[in-house]
Every structure is written in C-alpha cells, then in structure tokens.
Amino acid sequence: MMGNGFRITFWLFLSPVLLWLFLLIVIPHIDLLLLSFRGESDMGDPIWTLQNYKNFFIEPIYWYTFLRTALYAMITTFCTFILALPVSFYIVKLARPRTRGFLTVLLLLPFWVSELVRVYGWMILLRESGVFNYFMLKMGIIDQPIEMLYNDITMIMGLVYTSMLFMVVPLISVMESLDDSLIEAAHDLEASRFDILRTIIIPHCKPGITSGSIVVFMLALGNYLTPNLMGGKNSLWFTEQIYNQFIASFNWNQGAAFGFLLLVLSSVIIWVGLKVTRQNLGEVAS
C-alpha cells in the first residue's frame, strides 16, 4: 500500500519534468523532422519527398559549406586544445591556490557578457581604425593600418576564445587526478618535457580531452555570430545556411533538412573521432 502511494507521488512529481522535456525537446524536433521530408510538387502541392536531403548532396555549395564548417570547427577544437592544455596544467599543478582562483575567474570573465558584446569587443580591438592599429601606429611598428578582421584566422581566434573555458574545465578536472609523482617518475626515467606530455599527461587526460573536444567541436559547429561577424566575406558557416533557408528563403523544409543533416553528420564525425582514438562514450562520461 505504502509502496503504491510512493510510486504515485513519484510519478506525480516526475510527470511535469517529463512533460516539459517532451513538449520542449521532443515535439519540436519531430515537427522539424516531418517538415524536412515535406516539399512541393511541380504543381505547387505539398508532398512527401527526399528532395531536401538530396539537395544537400547535389548542390556543391551546401556540402562544401558543411565540409568547410566541420573542418574549421576541428581546427578550432585543435587550437583550443593546444592552448588549453598548458593553461590547465599551470592552473592545476603550478599556480598557488590564490592565483588559481584568480585565473579561473579570468577564464570565466568573458562569459559574464553576451557573445554579441564579446564579438563586438574583438571588432573594436581589431578593426582597421581599431585599438590595436592605433597603438601599433603610435609606436611606429607599422606605418599603414592593417585590417585584422574579416579573415579566417581572426574568426578561428574568436571561436577559440569563446570555446576556451569548455576545454579548460574538463581538462582541469582530469588533471587534478594526475599524481605529480607520475610526472616526476617519468622525468626521473630520462623523459624530456615533451615525452612527459606525450606519454603521461595526454594519455591520462584523454577522457577530459575527449569530452572537452566534443563540446568545443559542437559549439564551434553550431556557432553563428562569430563566423558571421568576424569571419567576413568568405566565411559562410553551415548554421548561417540553415538560418538563410528559414529566414531569407522561407524554405523551412530545406532548413529543417539541413538542421537534421547537421545533427547526423556531426554525430558521425564525433563517432569516427572516438573510434579513431579508441574510446567509447561511456568511458568519457564517467
């Protein structure tokens, strides 16, 4: 009797949560999925079709944009990793407790303002009439202002900056469990710094690297503002294409199909990445 009562209250309390999840996450996605299989016949009548998916593969611009986006997201992930590794190592192993707190706050700081503000901040710094150029001219390093915005390198820098925290945090948490004596033991066994990094630190941090990389990769892939504002003329990002389909071309069916392709293809990329590095998701999650 009592068990029953408990079960009822349990479900009573859980049901709003489930309903919430269902309403907000599952239903819109089903709606979008259905949408992505709709199209118009030549007569303009609505029909079921695979055309939206076919378009992606037939039209070079679409898959080219996707490839470009995925490639740049990977580059971003890699750069973020390369930068985040020494930073987290310093925070965990070298910094004093007080400096540690300070550095962590420093990493969090950019997230106190919205992404838009952050991107505009960068633009004020980097533009031709911007702060950097002003000082470099003043100091005589250059005699002509240079445009530092609107190129792929700046865009990747912006993406890396935005992603940094999401790589550093998991790295810090795995690094904390790395026993200092392992590093010392390797050092004692004639390993150079690079050897230690390669053979001890990175293998130990693998789960953190993987989870950080997945998050950063997905964030970069799904970013819209940074590539759009900092990347400039050539930087068509796949999310922008989805946006354009929905907003500019009013082609929701195509937009929905792109959305699902993004979901599926990015999952495939992550799956391949895990396979190549011989890991499984359960390991990473634990």
């Binding site: 026993d179 004596s181 033991a185 390797a186 004692d188 001890i200």
Partner: peptide, 12 residues
C-alpha cells in the same frame, strides 16, 4: 633513479 613512496607506476 628513484622508487617513489607510492611507486608511481604508469597506469596507462
């Protein structure tokens, strides 16, 4: 070479 107090064998 040093044998550490807690051995420090490489678990990986």
């Amino acid at each position: 070479n040093l044998v550490f107090q807690h051995l420090a064998l490489f678990p990986m």
